[in-house]
Design a binder for these strands. Structure first.
Lengths: 317, 317
DNA sequence: AGGTTTAGTGCAACTGTTTGCAGTCTTGAA
DNA sequence: TTCAAGACTGCAAACAGTTGCACTAAACCT
């Protein structure tokens, strides 16, 4: 049988409320009593039941984290950091995967609402209207999306994209292709408008493309036709696929064309050539998101991105 | 304020117990009453409070999943599959990361114990003694480890390793190096004993090595010295690092030496050359583990591994 | 017609904690 | 010495459900 607060109370000769307080408000109980209760609790192997506690306090000490696809290499570092931040304050973390389905997103938030103190929603696919309604049921923080009434954590891709194009320009590339992501993607737009602002380079836009390796692979032909010597890809997966596609076309990277990705996922670091990329602070975002949630502040924060130069970029022939 | 079972009861003119039953034992309530209660509940936006339910029933409908490192590419597919399996039966999943620390493992299980109906423990680092004691507090299923009294899901690396070495032998390699993992690793031993059983190849063991890219990189020199033309690496990360190290030494893969990895992680699929590897059924393992947990069966299952031949292996020069 | 089952519902106790209120006992100050 | 203020601690009512038991009424059998 599980040992409860009553067992501890009986065994240490005090009332249950005293036992309760030694755990949830230690300063309210006499030092001697407290230590006696604690040792008895230790002996009996007592651990407070969080569900019961949640019932009265309304706080569960649980958080929810919803991502589009756990297996997409972009997310694990974010999940890991969020988990670490949560544990640090003694919170537990539900992790959920929507499989890119907006409906699952809504469903999950509903299901979580009674069971968590807040949820962090990563790159949500649902409409603003839906999210705003949901935000009334449970506190939110949204990563990578602006949402009225919710705390948001943004990563400044625009800045990174500009750095990337400037890097290419600095190497001497005059014509650079932008291999975009899916139509209507907020990120894709950010990248594009930022890239367009760099003087001295002619930008040719190739897209929309699926945000995957296959998407990049499929764009290789058009990149060659464009005559661009430098490429900024929607993300690392696209960049890696593109490099492979270019290889099949007989084009070397970075010899014939330079390509830079965005995200800085692990496969990019391991790939050959090692990918030059815009590092997204996913870990920082995950950590910050849970901090905002726990402290219940409704700020909207923007995180810096930076350029990581590796081996997939060089001066043009 | 949140709407409770009592609100629904009042609004539909029945007792709370009837409302309770329409949700937890629908067959016990008259069809007409049931539908009335349901529509009222819908109107009011009622959702059962799982924490409260857990208090009386003792079942939380939550599961815990503990892995060594969320950001290690080996785990995300497993986590994703476990999550999907859990959702399918309306369970939620806590995910936790031990950062490779055995102490964190124990701590997490303790913390979970009151809050979940079971936990799946992936490649645990704790001692059997500790785990067996913990198994009394909460049902377990362990992946990748034999443990008395707990359901276990094993992946048959040995079989895969044999296939890999046979593949190399079939290509004509007579001398193959085994780049092992950390000393005392169960997996490492499995691989070795299986590899030794393949006739017609001379096996040279190189190790122990850290189970990382750097570990593989560092072993390149010794691989060259060994004179082996084929290599089986402890895992894909090691294989990838090794390929890079060999490259730095002027050795081409698969031209000069063939290498096969183990795990089939995403970076291996994306790498150039694409990695020949032993595919571990991590997704199946995750799914199976939660199924075992939910059905409370204490079986010990073994999952098949298979060889995926890609571009990092070829006949020797 | 009378007895027995059965379906449906209500009652109230219980799950493990928290917490506002009230009581007791010291302690310090006037 | 008296009174007020603390410091502890106990009491009991929540929190949101579930469930064994009892009760009623209808249906079913002889």
């Amino acid at each position: 049988m599980t040992v409860t607060i009553r067992d501890v109370a009986r065994a240490s000769g005090v009332h249950v409320s005293t036992v309760s307080r030694t755990f949830s408000a230690p300063h309210m109980v006499n030092a001697a009593t407290r230590s006696r209760v604690l040792t008895v609790a230790e002996e009996l192997g007592y651990r407070p039941n969080r569900a019961a506690r949640a019932l009265t306090t309304g706080r569960t000490h649980n958080l929810g984290l919803i991502v589009a696809d756990i297996a997409n290499p972009f997310f694990p570092p974010l999940i890991k950091a969020a988990h670490a931040a949560a544990r640090q304050r003694d919170y537990h973390l539900f992790v959920a995967d929507t499989d890119e389905e907006p409906a699952a997103e809504e469903e999950l938030i509903q299901a979580f609402s009674k069971q968590v103190d807040g949820v962090v929603l990563c790159s949500p696919r649902s409409s603003n209207k839906v999210l705003e309604r949901l935000a009334e049921r449970v506190p939110f923080v949204v990563i990578n999306r602006r949402l009225r009434g919710a705390a948001t954590v943004l990563m400044d891709v625009g800045h990174g994209a500009r750095l990337a194009v400037e890097h290419l320009a600095g190497l001497g590339h005059r014509r650079v292709a932008l291999v975009t992501g899916p139509a209507g993607s907020w990120t894709s737009d950010e990248i594009r408008t930022a890239a367009e602002q760099v003087p001295g380079v002619e930008l040719v836009v190739i897209g929309p493309n699926p945000p995957t390796e296959r998407g990049g692979f499929g764009a290789a032909e058009r990149v060659r036709e464009s005559g661009a010597t430098g490429v900024l890809a929607y993300n690392d997966l696209v960049a890696i696929g593109l490099i492979e596609g270019l290889g099949d076309l007989g084009l070397e990277v970075p010899g014939d064309v330079s390509v830079v990705g965005i995200d800085d996922i692990v496969p990019g670091r391991l790939n050959r050539p090692k990918l030059t990329t815009v590092a997204m602070p996913t870990a920082a975002a995950g950590r910050l998101a849970v901090d905002l949630l726990i402290q219940e502040v409704a700020a909207t924060t923007s995180l810096e991105t930076r350029l990581v130069v590796r081996d997939s970029t060089a001066a043009p022939r």
